[in-house]
Design a protein around this nucleic acid. Sequence first.
DNA 1: CAGCATCCGTTGCGATACTG
DNA 2: CAGTATCGCAACGGATGCTG
Lengths: 117, 117
Amino acid sequence: MQPDPFHRDCGSRKVLDRIGDRWSVLIVLTLADGDRRYGELAGRIDGISQKMLTQTLRGLERDGIVTRTVRASVPPRVDYALTDLGRSLVDLVAGLEVWATTHLAEVEAARARYDAR
Amino acid sequence: MQPDPFHRDCGSRKVLDRIGDRWSVLIVLTLADGDRRYGELAGRIDGISQKMLTQTLRGLERDGIVTRTVRASVPPRVDYALTDLGRSLVDLVAGLEVWATTHLAEVEAARARYDAR
DNA sequence: CAGCATCCGTTGCGATACTG
DNA sequence: CAGTATCGCAACGGATGCTG
């Protein structure tokens, strides 16, 4: 039997939750064009708190989407990179980004119309 | 200048939030193969509460992704359908569903590995 | 530098009860 | 049938301070 996200207890729901997550999308997108250090991610993703960055990275690592590599040096350096699984996701989340940006104006117009009644 | 979800205050963030939302994805997917009544949606999307169904439908309506049509009859009947904008989203969210189901096993294996250390 | 721990207000969301 | 209203808890998520 196929996994079916329409069914309550199917794990695909959890997977959907993660890949749909706001920060996950932005992190995967950032790592799509190259490995990044912790601080680089923090700098590129405007408005993310340290807590959410760490938390989201841990979740992505746990799900096998990113790898975390610690280099024993002073100061410490930690690199994050996409796994094969993570790379298989890039086109999809890039598609979300493209849709969001290209249809932003339409959505905002629709909202204005809706709120005005 | 292009809308950029990497910037804190860009509206594309909000758009991304909506289309990535767990229930939005399932609702759009359900409406993708035909208009549905409120109760049909409730029946097909296992585990959604009345509150979340209504709330998510309102959000999608506000964003111009679905339409809500009330037929004046007894008992009342309300039909939900995708707009053109909503249909432009179907392939994308279907892609999310496919990814989630096809990679579910990999993700669960990765989780088990991660948790076992 | 790359985090972890803690506090704490805000929001999400389910359960339940009621209505046109 | 298709909602709305209210309650209450749990999770989200930011700010701050500390550490190897």
